[in-house]
Write a protein that binds this DNA or RNA. Structure first.
Lengths: 152, 152
DNA sequence: GCTCATTAAGTTGTGCACAACTTAGTTGTG
DNA sequence: CACAACTAAGTTGTGCACAACTTAATGAGC
């Protein structure tokens, strides 16, 4: 194997591009299924976080999804308008807003679970392969976040 | 190992979420470096495609990047405004528009190559590991696109 | 009690993505 | 030639992402 490190980087040889494309592809697979529930993929992620632990604050949700308040705030606004969640200004600290599932939002849990199954199967990978890929990706993300904080 | 397939899907256990997060993380690593060149990550991808083969049509670029004309057209408009590319309406088929690097756009090739090197190193993975990850991701994307076309 | 730094959430502006649509040019068939 | 079907690029509208900023509430130190 020859490493031609100083050649022009080709699009299809780049791991980063493969990542970008794979991410969009899987979200595209979710789309028609989530459409039927009236959700987008990021909205679905919020619900997943709340099914696991209802009543998170906006900041906690952002930490969970790796998104800042500029993304999460309007996302929650739309989820609230859709009747999936409710926002409550906390009385012990008026800066904090906790997010709670409505009955409709909680009721989607089993349908949501089914959807993740279908997507997993469509990947053409075994459960073990998916776990391995997930762990490799999380390792990759962690390495990048480390580099981010040290070099700046 | 126990497979609890009917349990609530947990965010951090999902390969799809790992993919979504990893993709955003790597683009975030590119951002400050590309900022210095006056580029965004998708704009950088367009230039990579053109460094490899200048004069592609809008549709060919879209095929290469897996993006439709609704995304590519405004992207090219901004790249043209930035002085990186030039669009030419073809005279033999007036529907077609070919995209050509300007001198400034072509001149970024070596800087762009350096940036991909730096990002690759920041991943904390060896060259071989990155290749393996890339191939796994492309396999994943291909399986999903197959499923998309068969099940509609 | 006051002031100032900090924190939480939200707002504004830019640039993707993508669906749905429009416009204009080309091609195939009668 | 006529005209319908098709194709290429672009436009419009919605919803993320993210940087930069604003507003409001809290807490620490004096």
């Amino acid at each position: 194997m020859v490493l031609v490190m100083d050649a022009t980087p080709r699009l299809r040889e780049q791991a980063c591009f493969a990542l970008y494309t794979a991410s969009r592809a899987v979200i595209g697979l979710y789309r028609p299924m989530l459409d039927r529930l009236g959700l987008t993929y990021p909205q679905f992620l919020v619900l997943m976080a709340l099914w696991e632990s209802d009543g998170l604050t906006v900041t906690e949700l952002g930490d969970e999804l790796q998104l800042d308040s500029g993304t999460v705030s309007p996302l929650l606004k739309r989820l609230e308008a859709g009747g999936f969640v409710e926002r409550r200004r906390e009385s012990d600290d008026e800066r904090r807003v906790t997010v709670h599932l409505t009955e409709a939002g909680a009721a989607l849990e089993s349908r949501g679970c089914e959807i993740t199954q279908v997507v997993g199967e469509a990947s053409g990978m075994s459960y073990g392969e998916l776990i391995a890929l997930r762990d490799k990706l999380n390792e990759f993300t962690a390495a990048i976040h480390d580099r981010q904080s040290t070099t700046e």
